[in-house]
Design a protein around this nucleic acid. Structure first.
Lengths: 214, 214
DNA sequence: TTACGCGTGTGCAAGCGTGCAGTCATGCAA
DNA sequence: TTGCATGACTGCACGCTTGCACACGCGTAA
């Protein structure tokens, strides 16, 4: 009965509803501006009640951004860090970790439309930046676990939990900087490529400035 | 007619109203928990309409925290940086700058009660942390202006505006860390002194970790 | 096929937050 | 003292967001 990979009817309906709400929200916000569209209107266009709207997305902004079902859980983070954190450079590793949580790139066209909406409406960018800080605590726990195996932090000079929080904070700063750069009004017609590179550039910049501060 | 320093009747009444709302909010939230108190109840206790409540504070949380009338404006920041940013160490200077925006310590007892409320209700701490990021942009502009006179950044190696944003982000991370440390549930009965030192400790920690990351 | 359990959709009521417009008090100048 | 301009307080209407309770349909085991 399922068309895809063991996808049950219930699950499929759910995904369709989520996408219907997301697309309706994105379309109307791009057409009329976020402040001229109500949740009721978006819900009507997606054929659900407003109550159902909020079952799928916690805020109107999130519906426009089309958040993935759930931010990667601890296990996913754990798996990722095991796979990718081998460069030996903490800033690089943690930066990639922070970035991975948001690397849910939908198809190109939709991505561009979301970026366009974020550029036009600061509230959307702010919301996206908040998502970064929202996961800092969870990331800190994971990073702390891995710092315990790092020889540079085994001398007891600094508390490992504190160090992890600092590192995550600094790296997520780079992530926020990248988001800001990718959604500046004066940005050249960015394209996904620019958005892809914005993060790497932010990390590189972070590294340069740290060096100067020494 | 005015009791204090050229304070007109209008101004005095305004301050009294603000304090009445703040104290009512803080008292009831500490007594009953933030989710068991409505804006209507607080407003009633302060003898104003709910509409007036929101004329003074943008959110219920802000009323509990008792935000100062306005975050220091550009001129105030400018004056401060001229006065204090002379240590020759950018991390120190900018950190003090970030900190100064929040150095509106009310009298000790009220301060302790606010800290208690923040410790008990994460929403309050989150709100306080948001205030830090909210002023990052403004601080970045000021810092960028001063970086142009810094020999380390006159070589054109990195864009001054970008560098300023990175530095402010990193230093405000320290500020956020300090706020978190000062309002942890497992903190020893902190006292204002701990809160005072939390920030310096955070900056020192930041410096150590940066050194290890090199 | 039937019957049950559970997840999902919905309406309703309440609280939060804001723009608008009307009323009233304050501050100021004649 | 009087009169006016300005700004503060308020009510109202609306939109956002959430908890609760109920109804309905999907999934499943017999």
């Amino acid at each position: 009965m399922t068309s895809g990979t063991g996808e049950t009817l219930r699950t499929r309906k759910q995904r369709q509803t989520r996408e219907a709400i997301h697309h309706a929200a994105l379309r109307r916000v791009l057409d009329e501006g976020i402040d001229n569209v109500t949740v009721a209107e978006i819900s009507a266009e997606a054929n659900v009640s407003t109550r159902t709207f909020f079952n799928y997305f916690p805020t109107k902004e999130d519906a426009v951004l089309g958040l993935p079902e759930e931010i990667a859980d601890d296990d996913a983070i754990e798996a990722f860090i095991d796979r990718e954190c081998s460069s030996g450079d903490l800033v690089t590793d943690v930066s990639h970790l922070v970035r991975s949580v948001f690397a849910v790139t939908p198809n190109g066209e939709t991505f561009e439309r979301i970026r366009e909406a974020m550029t036009r409406h600061p509230q959307l960018r702010r919301r996206q930046l908040q998502r970064v800080t929202a996961i800092e605590q969870r990331l800190s726990r994971t990073v702390a676990g891995h710092l315990r195996t790092d020889h540079r932090f085994s001398d007891g000079d600094v508390d490992v939990d504190d160090a992890a929080r600092v590192i995550v904070m600094v790296c997520s700063s780079a992530m926020r900087l990248a988001i800001q750069n990718a959604t500046r009004n004066d940005a050249e017609a960015g394209s996904a490529e620019t958005a892809e590179h914005a993060f790497d550039q932010a990390v590189e910049l972070l590294r340069k400035v740290i060096r100067k501060l020494q």
